[in-house]
Amino acid sequence: MRDHTVVIGFGTKGRAALRTVCAAGLKKERVVVIDPSAKAMASAAAEGFETVSGDATRSDVLRQAEVQRAGKIIVATQRDDTAVLVVLTARQLNPTATIVAAVREEENAPLLRQSGADEVVTGASAAGRLLGLSVLTPAAGLVMENLMRQGSGLDMVERPVTKAETGHRPRDLADLVVTVVRGHRVLAYDDPAIGVLEPTDRVVAIVRGNGGNGQTPPR
């Protein structure tokens, strides 16, 4: 494989991540799942994913999944210390892949980033914020939960700016733009530095479950 997606850990987090990316259009045959549990591997295979059984902190196991050729790597291990070792080893094998990792404790997030993760999701903190939001403003909590369920109504997607949208302001688009990605900068929708949209910009937008504005969600 080349430019595929590798998911390390087929527990609750790994399964949820896969449901999201597959709902957005990722083909199951473009996914390799790594987990040391024979039961988890049998379940992943039954769902149509390629599997590699073993300890993902070992470079030989990662090589079996062709991590060195992967485009995206999702690290969803049960333990934070395992996640750090996995990210460090995966980054050594593949300097260019996008690596997203989940951790239980927020204090471990900086270590994940230092190890090579591009993005770190803190499970406990994210769940706590959603709980707090749901208590204070139930309707807002429902909207956030909806956004986290890809394809169920409202989705949040990142997509390139179309030719027709170039030269317009973010608020002029049919989709509700949250952020504009310009080069290495991530700009809030109301940042005066945006001005008008440029041909190479990407937007993060809230859309209907079909991808919004005729665009196919990124793979």
Rank of each mutant, 00 (worst) to 15 (best):
M1H: 12
T5N: 12
V6E: 08
T12G: 13
A17I: 07
A17V: 13
A23T: 06
G25R: 00
L26P: 02
L26R: 09
K27Y: 12
E29Q: 08
V31I: 15
A38K: 10
K39C: 00
M41L: 09
A44W: 14
A44S: 08
F49L: 01
T51L: 01
V52L: 01
A56C: 11
A56V: 02
S59R: 15
V61N: 12
L62M: 07
L62Y: 12
R63V: 05
V67T: 08
T77H: 05
Q78L: 13
A83H: 03
V86I: 11
V87H: 05
V87S: 05
A90S: 06
T96D: 15
T98G: 04
V100R: 07
V103R: 03
V103Y: 05
R104P: 07
R104M: 09
E107Q: 12
L111S: 02
L112T: 03
L112S: 09
S115R: 14
D118E: 11
V120D: 04
A127P: 06
T137I: 05
A139T: 13
L142E: 09
V143E: 13
L147M: 02
L147I: 00
G151D: 07
S152M: 13
G153D: 09
G153V: 08
G153M: 05
V157Y: 07
K163E: 14
G167K: 02
R169G: 06
R171D: 15
L173Q: 04
A174E: 13
D175R: 05
L176V: 00
A188D: 12
D190V: 02
D191I: 02
G195I: 13
G195W: 12
L197I: 04
L197E: 06
D201T: 11
V204I: 14
G211S: 01
G212Y: 06
N213D: 15
G214F: 11
P218N: 15
R219K: 15
R219T: 11
